[in-house]
Amino acid sequence: MKKRNKYFEEYYQKIRNDISFITLKKNATIKFKDKEYITGKELPVPIRVEKLLEDIKKQDEIDGLTLNNLIDGIIYLMGTDRSFEYLVDYKEMFKKLSFEIVPYIIYCINNSNNSKDNLVYAKALINNEENEKSCFIYASALENMGIEFHEKGNEVSRYYFEEALEYFEKCLEYNDKFPLAYYKLGYYYKRNQQYVKAELIWSKHQELDDDTIRVEEIRNELIQLKPYVDYEKGYNLVLNEKPEEALDLLLPLVKDFSGWWNLLFFIGLAYRSMGEYSIAERYFENVLKINNVQKDALNELGLCKICLGKYVEAAELFSKLLSLDPGNCEIFCNRAVAYLYNEQVDRAKEDIETALKINPEDPVALSIKEELKKYE
């Protein structure tokens, strides 16, 4: 079970355990407007407010219990225990009373500032019927709880945001023309640095939403998103061994984003894959001016130094990297190569021995070991 799933299971179980019950006697009457419901058997009903429970226990009859008292407890139970055996009886009661529970829950959510209550109420909507609207309401309630926890510095906020994202996505499974889901999802994908996905989602939103304020808001977001979309497309081209195409997208971004080390790193990577080691060297050095402990940049710069014949500088870079990541087999191999090319065979052998202790099956280390045998 995922930690997030376990967290919410325990969260709702704790709330469920805090719910108390009283029993309506057989033939007890509940009234709503001109309707009434008469219990055909003893019926346990949930009560959430302890003070109310104490007051009711002092009475001989159930007349002091209002429908609102019942509804509050029932909704909490619906939200925390969807398999409770008497839920079917409660739904029958609402039917007899012509009481629409779903609009009432939505009304309560819209008129409450209590995020915890709203979360359980929204979960009750989901447990009653899962559709695009109930998913959206629940996702929004999760998001609000996540914001509260985030503002308090509580790391569980990530569970709420992850769960919210899942339910915003579920909205589109039920209705792929639901504009509010597209509106929200774009922000989530943007925060998760999924810029291309955010652009696609927001572009769809522009086609569907008839709210001019939201449409204008997202239009501006799309304009601001464009360089990040180019960045994501560019680095994917680098990773897919298309460096020339990548540079067409990435290089124009440097003017406005010269302090963005991620951008400079992938430009450097593109040039290194093209064999332009001197240019790549400059970009990786600029990355380290921004973030002097960026491990990938240290490694890539070291490889460029080897290709440029700067073996001492390469070894120094790999040594710095090993101080940050002392158990990295790959870096020991890289430093061994730098030592070997600099004719420091004994040091190269030591590094390969260390690398093979870390990973006896590492093919690169084994290959270098074979090469070193030529120097015995």
Rank of each mutant, 00 (worst) to 15 (best):
Y167I: 04
D210V: 15
E244W: 05
Y341G: 00
L208S: 06
K133S: 11
K14C: 08
E330F: 13
L208N: 04
N262K: 13
F265C: 04
S157T: 09
E36H: 13
E221T: 09
K197D: 07
F32R: 11
K152D: 13
L225D: 00
I105W: 00
E371S: 11
I218C: 05
K96P: 06
N68M: 14
K226P: 02
K3F: 08
A246Y: 04
N127W: 07
S367R: 14
N192F: 13
V102A: 05
A164H: 03
K289P: 00
L263T: 00
V254N: 02
G146L: 08
L356C: 04
K289C: 02
S367L: 14
L237E: 09
C333V: 12
D210N: 15
L372G: 02
E85S: 12
A365D: 03
V215R: 06
T80C: 09
L247R: 04
C135E: 06
P326D: 13
E244G: 03
T80R: 01
L308G: 04
A270Y: 05
M78Y: 08
R347F: 14
R4G: 01
N334M: 09
S98T: 13
R191E: 15
I137D: 02
I109L: 08
P360L: 11
N291D: 12
R272H: 08
Y37I: 06
L366E: 02
E281F: 11
S278K: 15
D72E: 15
Y283M: 09
D211E: 12
R191M: 15
L142N: 05
C307D: 07
L208P: 02
R347Y: 13
